[in-house]
Design a protein around this nucleic acid. Structure first.
Length: 278
DNA sequence: GGCCAGGTGTACC
DNA sequence: GGTACACATGGC
């Protein structure tokens, strides 16, 4: 049992940061790295298997000071204030790096439901069966980079990845042979780390910022996708057209060190609360 | 059936 | 620096 004030498990695991956790009657099942895991919330407490508390606490970022973050961001305009109020317990997770990077490489121009389906398929085909869920189906770890590199582009294409298979296979090869040292890169400054990520096949500014935010804990990163772009333009610029660069620059200036949290609140609210655009 | 989805790479200027 | 276009697949 972990104390978890200002925390919302369903919003956190269901807000498009991770792509394989599954809700079975209030208990969320998945793999945390190579360990099978279940997590549930009971009021201001989080419950998980005995012995896994520290790992789960780290993954869920229960140490983030949500009172301070929420208070700071709620002062930055009515659009963000509404978004924070919609799901104040939403957290930015600390995900395993390769799994996060690979997951987002499969994401461009896809809906979250389909990204989920791809993640589950890759796990079953190329990951390890590490446990069993409540429905009797296996729980699988995310495939090692070497396993996806070995599979190759054409095999990955058959997992409904489409053109994204090329980038995933190429980046997997770089990670597998150490030319891309995801763990070692954690020591880099955020601008340097971002440049490294941008050098990987299939990774542009949006995915680089997702990985900075969801795997490296760089809370100032501000991934701009179609939802966030609309939310910023509608909420702060009367809907006017803006380049992605301009939106990122605005977010850095306006939202500062917690821009990543602002982003996730805006994204979650826009996606689930209905967009003003038809 | 057309439009949209957590965009990126390439070819231009 | 910006802009235009191709790119796989599935839900609605």
């Amino acid at each position: 049992v972990l104390p978890a004030p200002d925390f919302d498990l369903a919003a956190t695991l269901g807000s498009g940061q991770v792509f394989h956790w599954t809700d079975h009657g209030g208990v969320w099942w998945g793999a945390l790295g190579d360990k099978p895991m279940w997590i549930r919330q009971d009021g201001c407490a989080v419950i998980c298997p005995a012995g896994a508390e520290e790992k789960v606490r780290h993954f869920l970022a229960l140490d983030h000071d949500m009172a301070a973050i929420g208070k700071s961001l709620s002062r930055k305009g009515p659009a963000l204030r509404r978004a924070v109020a919609f799901a104040p317990g939403l957290r930015i997770l600390r995900q395993p790096k390769w799994e996060c990077l690979a997951g987002f490489i499969t994401s461009p121009l896809k809906q979250i439901a389909h990204i989920r389906a791809i993640s589950l398929t890759l796990r079953e085909k190329y990951g390890e069966r590490v446990g069993e869920g409540p429905d009797g189906r296996g729980i699988f770890s995310y495939p090692e980079a070497a396993a996806l590199a070995r599979a190759g582009e054409s095999a990955l294409r058959s997992c409904k990845l489409g053109y994204r298979a090329k980038g995933l296979a190429a980046t997997a090869a770089l990670v597998a042979d150490g030319r891309a040292d995801l763990e070692g890169w954690a020591a880099l400054t955020t601008p340097d780390l971002r440049l490294r990520l941008l050098g990987l096949p299939g990774v542009g500014p949006k995915i680089a910022d997702c990985v900075l935010l969801f795997a490296y804990g760089r809370l100032e990163a501000f991934p701009v996708d179609v939802w966030v772009s609309r939310a910023v333009r509608d909420g702060y610029f009367d809907g006017e057209e803006m380049s992605e660069r301009a939106i990122i620059a605005f977010a850095a200036k306006r939202f500062g060190a917690y821009a990543g949290y602002a982003q996730q609140y805006l994204f979650h609210h826009a996606r689930l609360h209905g967009s003003p655009h038809p």
